[in-house]
Computed example of a mutant assay.
Amino acid sequence: MSQIVYVIFILIWIFIAGMSVMMFDDPDAINNTTTWLIFITIWLYPVGLLAAIIGGWVTFSRRHYRASLIWNCIPLLWIVPLGGFLVYSFIM
């Protein structure tokens, strides 16, 4: 079930990835390391998702259920900060 939710987040990721290029509107942003790290982190979501899906199913098939749950939590490294930012923006 969690993997279905993560795949649905690909639709949200497409929008966020498209908007992430706007971080480079400022001419000084091209030399800013933080901007590049955030940009690369956003674009690595599909890699993390694919690794989580493959790793989760491999460990599940080997009956390592706890490791499978850990592998399934990898995409949360992208989803939780985004959700936290959205909650913060609605509160403030």
Results as ranks from 00 to 15, higher is better:
Ser20Thr: 06
His64Asn: 12
Thr33Leu: 13
Phe24Ile: 03
Trp13Asn: 04
Gln3Cys: 11
Leu37Met: 12
Ala67Tyr: 08
Leu76Trp: 01
Asp26Cys: 02
Pro27Met: 04
Ser68Asp: 08
Phe9Ile: 06
Ile4Ala: 09
Ile38Asp: 07
Thr59Phe: 11
Val7Gly: 01
Trp57Ser: 01
Gly18Tyr: 05
Asn32Ile: 02
Tyr6Met: 10
Met92Pro: 00
Trp13Ile: 03
Val80Trp: 01
Gly84Asn: 06
Ile91Val: 07
Thr33Gly: 08
Thr34Met: 05
Thr33Ala: 14
Ile79Asn: 08
Asn31Ser: 14
Gln3His: 15
Ile40Thr: 10
Arg66Gln: 13
Pro81Phe: 10
Ile54Trp: 09
Thr34Lys: 08
Ser61Tyr: 15
Pro75Asp: 11
Ile4Tyr: 02
Leu76Cys: 06
Trp57Lys: 07
Tyr88Ser: 03
Trp78Gln: 10
Trp57Gly: 00
Arg63Pro: 00
Ile30Val: 13
Met19Trp: 05
Ser20Ile: 07
Val87Thr: 06
Val7Asp: 01
Val58Trp: 12
Pro75Met: 09
Phe60Gly: 04
Asp25Lys: 09
Thr33Glu: 12
Asn31Thr: 15
Phe60Asp: 07
Leu76Val: 03
Leu76Arg: 07
Trp71His: 12
Leu82Ile: 14
Ile74Met: 09
Ile54Leu: 14
Thr35Lys: 05
Ser20Ala: 15
Ala17Pro: 10
Met19Thr: 10
Ile4Gly: 02
Phe9Gly: 08
Val21Gly: 13
Ser20Leu: 09
Gln3Lys: 10
Ala67Asp: 13
Leu76Ala: 06
Leu69Asp: 14
Phe85Gln: 03
Ser61Glu: 13
Thr33Ser: 14
Phe60Arg: 13
Pro46Gly: 14
Ile16His: 09
Tyr65Ala: 07
Phe9Thr: 12
Leu86Gly: 01
Tyr45Pro: 04
Phe9Tyr: 11
Gly55Pro: 01
Gly56Cys: 04
Ile42Asp: 10
Ile91Gln: 00
Arg63Phe: 14
Ile16Asn: 05
Pro46Ser: 10
